[in-house]
Amino acid sequence: MNLIERLQESMRHAARERYTSVPVPPFTAYFHPFDAMVYLNYVIPDGPVTGDTREALRKLRTEFEARQRVPRFEYVDALAPELAGMLSAAGYRQEAEARLMACTRDTYVPFKGPERLTLTVLSPDSPREEVRDFCVTTRQGFSPGETVTVGDEEVSKTLEDLKDGRAFLARMDGRPVSGGQFSSPHQGTTELAGVATLQEWRGRGIGAALVSRAAEEAFSRGVEVLFLSTITEEAGRLYERVGFRFVTRMLFYVDAAAPAHG
């Protein structure tokens, strides 16, 4: 298994651990148990995709519609190069293209961050209110200006997800300003996802410091490859400061009838 295949398999493993898996060969759909947010419900190909997939794509739509979720795909383009054309023909539009980047112990560069910054590692034993702060902060980081309410069910689900993974909460002068989380490691590989900093605190090295702390924690727990995906070049440069290097690209496709999301 080469590095690109290893990263995609790690994504499948993380999705199986966190979500409900519904096989529809040559795909598997992953559904969040209670949250219909478009980014938490998606499809990953099981491997290379060839031949006639129209019936499988029809069945996938049925599965999403039955759960009142928006059909969406996210996958490594190099491992299914024909899929983009199939999805376009089936009524999907490209939502985004991301750079997949990886960091190892050999490339890792520690990054301290600004003064007055504190970083907390969240585990299954962390106080529920700390975990709630993490959930609120990351959601606000991705949706500036929106009022965010995090219920007990989401806090409990996040704590459950931390059984083998870890989350990170950055504070400036005690105020939560940034967060991120790596999933349960699989064969020495894990993904750092959901890294978000509140809009008014961006550009100060807070995100880089959080990613650096996450990498340090992952490597201390036996991880060999920590990876992430980023859509913006600005974020990519931030991650490069910590030792992440470009590997390949990911594609995100969503039902063309769905409203655009920020």
Rank of each mutant, 00 (worst) to 15 (best):
L3I: 13
Q8H: 10
E9V: 00
M11I: 06
M11C: 10
R12C: 05
H13I: 08
H13S: 15
A15C: 06
S21H: 06
P23D: 11
P23K: 12
T28S: 12
Y30R: 08
Y30N: 02
F31C: 01
H32C: 02
F34H: 05
M37A: 15
M37D: 14
Y39R: 12
L40F: 13
N41T: 03
V43A: 09
I44L: 14
P45L: 12
D46F: 05
G47H: 11
G47N: 12
V49F: 06
T50R: 12
D52S: 10
T53C: 13
T53V: 15
R54K: 13
A56Q: 12
L57V: 08
L57Y: 00
A66N: 08
R67Q: 03
V70P: 00
P71E: 06
V76I: 14
V76H: 01
A80D: 04
A80N: 05
E82L: 07
G85R: 15
L87M: 10
A89E: 11
G91Q: 07
Y92L: 03
Y92S: 04
R93I: 04
R93D: 14
Q94H: 13
Q94R: 15
A98D: 06
L100A: 09
M101V: 09
M101Y: 04
A102H: 03
C103P: 01
C103M: 08
T104V: 07
T104Y: 09
V109I: 09
P110L: 09
P110K: 03
P110Q: 08
F111G: 04
K112I: 08
G113L: 06
E115Y: 04
R116C: 05
R116D: 14
L119D: 05
T120Y: 07
V121A: 13
L122S: 02
L122F: 02
D125K: 13
S126A: 14
P127G: 07
E129M: 10
F134T: 06
F134H: 03
F134P: 03
V136C: 08
T138Q: 14
F142P: 00
S143H: 13
T147E: 15
T149W: 08
G151E: 13
E154K: 11
K157P: 00
E160Y: 11
D161L: 08
K163I: 04
R166Q: 11
F168N: 00
L169I: 07
A170Q: 02
A170W: 01
D173S: 03
R175A: 13
P176A: 04
V177S: 03
S178D: 07
G179K: 02
G180S: 03
G180M: 02
G180E: 00
Q181A: 09
Q181G: 01
Q181D: 08
F182G: 03
S183H: 15
P185N: 07
G188Q: 05
A193G: 14
A196D: 07
W201M: 09
G203K: 14
G205N: 05
G205E: 01
V211G: 01
A215P: 00
A218S: 07
A218R: 01
F219K: 01
S220K: 11
S220T: 08
V223G: 03
E224A: 15
L228Y: 09
E234K: 09
G236W: 03
R237W: 12
E240T: 10
V242C: 03
V242M: 05
F244Y: 07
R245E: 13
V247N: 04
V247F: 02
T248G: 05
M250T: 11
L251H: 06
F252R: 08
F252S: 10
Y253E: 06
V254E: 01
A256V: 10
A256C: 09
A257G: 07
A257L: 07
A257Y: 00
H261Y: 13
